[in-house]
């Protein structure tokens, strides 16, 4: 463990908590893409099946349980409890265009052709594009609530910090996982446009609104 990975995990945890609290306290999921949240629930489910097969550390196990629990709770709030506030018309990204190619790629390019490893690989590839429905929805509505931008910033920062973690681990441990690194680079690049808007607008106290 190094500080980049630790702060990456904490940023990820912050994003998950920020979103869950935002929906719970405002009793509304307006502006939130339920599709992205379903994809994240799939990401955690397929990646953390090793909870059933191996124990790495209390930190590892507890964080996985928190991620899975919060992501399912978020999906529940969006599609059940506060479904009246769900903006289905603007959450129209065709997720099958993500799941099918990612599934195919996971079967073709992986470290080991075993079920758990293919599911892990699928989860890594899916996570890199899981935010697209959310970014697409913001481009359609032309704006995002400030709390949603903080959620997105933490979500994007987490994998950016993981990239530094992988540089650190390669240099000090000789460890690298090309699949996670390539997917992590793609994932972080997808946030660049948002990062620019976040720094130039939200951090200056303005509302994030895209030229419609």
């Amino acid at each position: 463990m190094n500080i980049f990975r630790l702060f990456g995990d904490l940023s990820h945890l912050a994003a998950i908590i920020i979103l869950l609290l935002k929906i719970w306290k405002s009793r509304s999921c307006a502006g939130i893409s339920g599709k992205s949240q379903i994809l994240f629930a799939i990401v955690f489910t397929t990646r953390y099946l090793d909870l059933l097969t191996s124990f790495i550390s209390l930190y590892n196990t507890s964080m996985k349980m928190i991620y899975i629990g919060c992501s399912y709770a978020t999906v529940y709030l969006i599609y059940a409890k506060f479904r009246a506030t769900y903006d289905g018309n603007h959450d129209s990204f065709r997720v099958e265009f993500l799941i099918v190619p990612v599934g195919g790629l996971a079967v073709l390019i992986n470290h080991d052709f075993s079920l758990l490893e293919i599911l892990w690989t699928f989860s890594i590839y899916l996570e890199s594009v899981a935010i697209l429905p959310q970014l697409f929805m913001i481009s359609k509505t032309g704006e995002a609530e400030t709390i949603t931008t903080h959620y997105l910033f933490c979500q994007g920062l987490y994998r950016a910090l993981y990239l530094i973690n992988w540089i650190w681990r390669f240099y000090f441990e000789g460890f690298f996982d090309m699949i996670a690194i390539v997917a992590g680079v793609v994932q972080t690049i997808l946030y660049c446009d948002f990062f620019y808007l976040y720094v130039t607008k939200v951090l200056k106290g303005k509302k994030l609104s895209l030229p419609a």
Partner: peptide
């Protein structure tokens, strides 16, 4: 090596 027998990252 490339084959990561156990993924220790979240």
């Amino acid at each position: 090596g490339m084959s990561v027998d156990e993924h220790d990252e979240l």
